[in-house]
Design a protein around this nucleic acid. Structure first.
Lengths: 189, 189
DNA sequence: AATTTTAACTAACAAGTGTTAGTTTATTGT
DNA sequence: ACAATAAACTAACACTTGTTAGTTAAAATT
């Protein structure tokens, strides 16, 4: 039972508020009020509002990068790799639904770390694309428009943060399995 | 060839900026600067920043509501209705990619019209859900988790605004057809 | 018991916010 | 040519923003 440092409490509080209203609409006074302290007190623990956002986004982006690295090293079919990616998204999102909102909607407000973030995102998408392309080449995946397939899957996975909190009754493995099936086999009977 | 009123120019300029940085991060001075005038001059044409956002979002939401109404009245299979919905999203999004960003990310900053927007969105989702449910009942659609199917399709359709601007080479009917196929039949060979 | 550290506080700052009031200038319709 | 309108302007407002400086009180360490 590890208890939160004060800095982590601030980041968690901010993350929740950022999800509800977006980074720009949340003030330091909002964050402080939610914690029952004054805005100036936050600066005993964090450097700036900007650093809070960076912390939220970069740590999540790195989780995805690491997850992708593992998937690429796993020796299974490309379809199985896609299932692993679905599981990766479900797990990371289930553990930090609030943070995923910032990752998706507020990355453009990063400053010094914006280029680094974009690099991680680009690499991630390219790896995803590569798996799909190999799947097509190996006759595992239909030879339809690669970019549309990529876009469709990524859109669904990136929107999980909006949806997981509303359906707490579904456990994560059940969700991963169901979602994999729908993304891979469609909904047609 | 109908030419834009000054008010429309302002709304269009604002819509573009809102997509790049989000509603809260865009100032009236930003909008004015992009038009080469002073912020105060905007108020000769619009009532408030808030009204710009409302205008963007509500008109789009009503377009979707009207489109759905037409789909529901069309006498085709439920799978065909889903294809019509895909086409609806592709067309509306292609005509207003910038506005779709506000619809997706800034609806929570609506004020007087927030409840109305939520009502439109709820009704839309329920109609979508109803088509899927009928499809399941008629053995057109697999009897998998309804909510996951709904979420997956809607997520993809709602993210179109991020993707359409990058792929201008693809025409809208081709995109609709491809996307329908992937959403309905999956990517599996 | 004395000292350092932690973490809150009050007060203030400079800059930026949406918006209003009043004015000026160019264009349009008579 | 004259009046009316459209659409820009300057100046200012009241308020909010992120952040800093300096202070205080309790808790932990010596």
């Amino acid at each position: 039972m590890k208890l939160e440092t004060r800095k982590e409490e601030i980041i968690n509080t901010a993350t929740k508020l950022f999800k509800e209203k977006g980074y720009s609409a949340v003030t330091m006074r909002d964050i402080a009020k939610a914690m029952g302290i004054k805005a100036a007190s936050l600066y005993n623990h964090i450097n700036s509002k900007q650093h809070i956002l960076t912390d939220i986004i970069i740590s999540l982006a790195e989780e995805f990068t690491n997850g992708m690295k593992t998937v690429l090293l796993t020796d299974v079919s490309n379809i199985e790799k896609l299932k692993l990616i679905v599981t990766l998204h479900v797990h990371i999102t289930a553990n930090n639904t609030y943070g995923m909102a910032s990752l998706n909607n507020d990355w453009m407000h990063l400053e010094e770390q914006l280029d680094y973030y974009l690099e991680l995102r680009d690499t991630y998408e390219n790896n995803f694309r590569g798996i799909l392309q190999e799947g097509i080449d190996n006759n595992e995946i239909i030879n339809s428009n690669l970019e549309i397939m990529l876009f469709s899957m990524l859109s669904t996975l990136r929107s999980l943060y909006l949806w997981i909190p509303k359906k707490e009754d579904l456990n994560t493995t059940e969700l991963s399995d169901n979602l994999s099936h729908i993304l891979i086999n469609g909904i047609n009977k």
